[in-house]
Amino acid sequence: MTCSEFDKAFDPYVDGLLDPLSAAAARMHLESCPTCDRMVARWQQSRILLSTAVAEIAAAVDVSGLFTAVGSALDAGCELEDGALTRPSVTRGASHQREFHAERGGVSASVDIAARTARPAARMRRFSAIGRFVAVAGGSAVAAAASIMLLAPGMTLPVQVATETTPSTFSLGSSLRLKPVTFTAPERRDGGVWRPLLPVPALVDALEAGEGRTVSTWVQPRTQTRVIWVQSRNSGPTLQTAGYDK
């Protein structure tokens, strides 16, 4: 083997990738060529220095909070370059509400609640990479139950259009026990409207709203909170709680 040939075989040789015959030829060359032998020795020294230098620095880096930091960033629904995080679809919930409200002549406040429950499976795939499955599924079931109850026949619901940022109210013609869900979601500004990025339903309280009471629900822009209030005729809004009554 010549020096030129060894130079071409240098990398697979030092990486131990030469076939046995070629490796033997390379070793024979090194035994008789101090220049090439010195080149290999220098490389081995450089390799050790590099590995040691990197290992010493890397070993000192504290990665104990890395999972928490990554999880927090994902939970916060940070903006993505590809915009992968999207709003939960409101189509299904809204259309359901529109069907109902076509009968009632308006749109219910529960649009927002139902909207957040739309296609929970899809949301889980998108948002639950860090374990929101249980929360989303549980919250969705509860919110769906609330929506169903709100939409029960026999109810008189003068309503107004619900949006993400305006309150929606409806009055109850009869006693209704419902279990509201308060959603906390980071929001982003999208075309001038604050929209939720990642609905994270969390069961708060059961709520009993008696006859003549007004239940309002709205999203507080930029506070990441949806609030449900119950207001009686003669007093200001209060948040009432009660046990869940099936």
Binding site: D62, V70, L80
Partner: peptide
């Protein structure tokens, strides 16, 4: 982390890139 330290040397920068890597990985799973 070892690879990133080798690339950027500064350990804080390496950790930051490491964190960003995993954020992107799990966002785009």
């Amino acid at each position: 982390l070892g690879v990133l330290v080798g690339m950027v040397r500064n350990p804080e920068d390496a950790r930051e890139i490491l964190q960003e890597t995993f954020i992107r990985v799990f966002r785009n799973l």
